[in-house]
Amino acid sequence: MHETALMAGVFDVIEKHTADLTVQRVTKVILVVGEMTNAMPDALEAVFTVFAHGTKVEGAELQIRMIPLTARCTECEWEGSIEQHVFICPHCSSLGLEIKSGRELYVESLEVE
């Protein structure tokens, strides 16, 4: 249940980007979460409510944008999605697949008033 530590990171980012502005309220937080992270959206949402309580983020909508796991083959340039976490190139059977997307964990944007 490290979503608590992840959410502390989310609120650090929110604080940093709203501290020096005349922000009264944060109404929406857009969080980007890759498929191959160990972050569970349900747990993130539950912890978000707890962190937001009594702050200018209270009542804000948390929108989580999931990013699928994709990779690129360093041998044959194949690019595509990775199913069942099998990191073997479906085109040339090379083992040299690099993750292109799916490891994201970042705050994309905030809606503020």
Partner: peptide, 12 residues
């Protein structure tokens, strides 16, 4: 108002 952030939550 929208604020573009694009900052990792593990960056610290």
């Amino acid at each position: 108002m929208e604020i573009k952030v694009n900052q990792g939550i593990l960056s610290s």
